[in-house]
C-alpha cells in the first residue's frame, strides 16, 4: 500500500549526513523555485562525494525523490556526465588527461608509471580500495601538461618523482583519516 503522506525527502536524509543535505539545499536555492531539475548535477556530485566516489541505484533514486523529479531524469544525468561513477571506484580516483597536449608531453609515461606503481591497469582499482586510475579528456590545464587530477586537486607538470609524491601524500592523508574514523577492515 502506498503511503501518500510519505515524506519523499527522508530517503536521502537517511543516506547522507546533514551537512551534505544542507549543501544540496543551498544549490536548490540558486534556481527558480518552480524548477526542480537544475540542482540534479550538484546533488549527484555531493551524493557521490559522500558515498566513496560512486553512485548507487538507491542514491540516485533518493536524489530523485528528494528533488521530486522522475527517476529517469536523474539516471539520464548520472549516465551522461563522465564525472559520475556508477560502479564502485577507489577512494581516490586519479584522472589522467591523455588529450593532445598532455600526450605530446608524455601522458603515456605518466599512465605507465602509475600502473606500475599501483600495480593496476587503467580502469581498475587497487586491492585496498584506495586508488582507481582513469584516463580523461582535456581538463583545461594544457599549459601544465602532463597533468592529472585526484579528488578535486590538479597536479601539473608531472614527473615520476612528483607522481610518487602525490601517491604517498594521498596515502598518508588516508591513513590519518582511517585512524580517526576506525575504518573496518
Amino acid at each position: 500500500m502506498t503511503d501518500f503522506n510519505y515524506d519523499k525527502s527522508l530517503h536521502l536524509k537517511k543516506l547522507l549526513p546533514k551537512d551534505a543535505i544542507d549543501k544540496i539545499d543551498n544549490w536548490i536555492g540558486k534556481y527558480p523555485a518552480d524548477r526542480k531539475r537544475p540542482p540534479i548535477i550538484a546533488a549527484l556530485t555531493i551524493a557521490q562525494e559522500h558515498n566513496g566516489n560512486y553512485l548507487t541505484e538507491d542514491l540516485m533514486q533518493a536524489v530523485a525523490e528528494y528533488l521530486d523529479v522522475p527517476h529517469i531524469a536523474v539516471y539520464e544525468v548520472a549516465t551522461f556526465y563522465s564525472m559520475f561513477h556508477l560502479n564502485e571506484v577507489g577512494e581516490f580516483v586519479i584522472s589522467v588527461c591523455n588529450n593532445i597536449s598532455c600526450s605530446m608531453r608524455g601522458a603515456n609515461k605518466v599512465i605507465e608509471h602509475l600502473q606500475n606503481r599501483l600495480n593496476i591497469k587503467v580502469g581498475e582499482t587497487t586491492g585496498d580500495g584506495l586508488f582507481t586510475i582513469k584516463t580523461v579528456e582535456c581538463m583545461a590545464a594544457c599549459g601544465g601538461a602532463p597533468m592529472l587530477e585526484v579528488n578535486k586537486v590538479y597536479y601539473e607538470n608531472l614527473t615520476e618523482e612528483k607522481i610518487d609524491q602525490i601517491i604517498s601524500d594521498v596515502t598518508m592523508l588516508r591513513s590519518k583519516k582511517s585512524k580517526s574514523t576506525e575504518v573496518k577492515k
Binding site: 531539475r37 548535477i41 556530485t45 544525468v77 564525472m83 579528456e137
Partner: peptide, 27 residues
C-alpha cells in the same frame, strides 16, 4: 550571480547544451 558546475561533458560548452545542463538535464 550564481556559479553552476557541470560534471564532465565537453558538449556542455556548446551554448544550448550548456543551457540544458543548467536546467539539470543532459547536455
Amino acid at each position: 550571480l550564481h556559479n553552476h558546475m557541470g560534471a564532465g561533458a565537453y558538449i556542455c560548452g556548446e551554448e544550448t547544451a550548456l543551457i540544458e545542463s543548467i536546467e539539470g538535464k543532459k547536455g
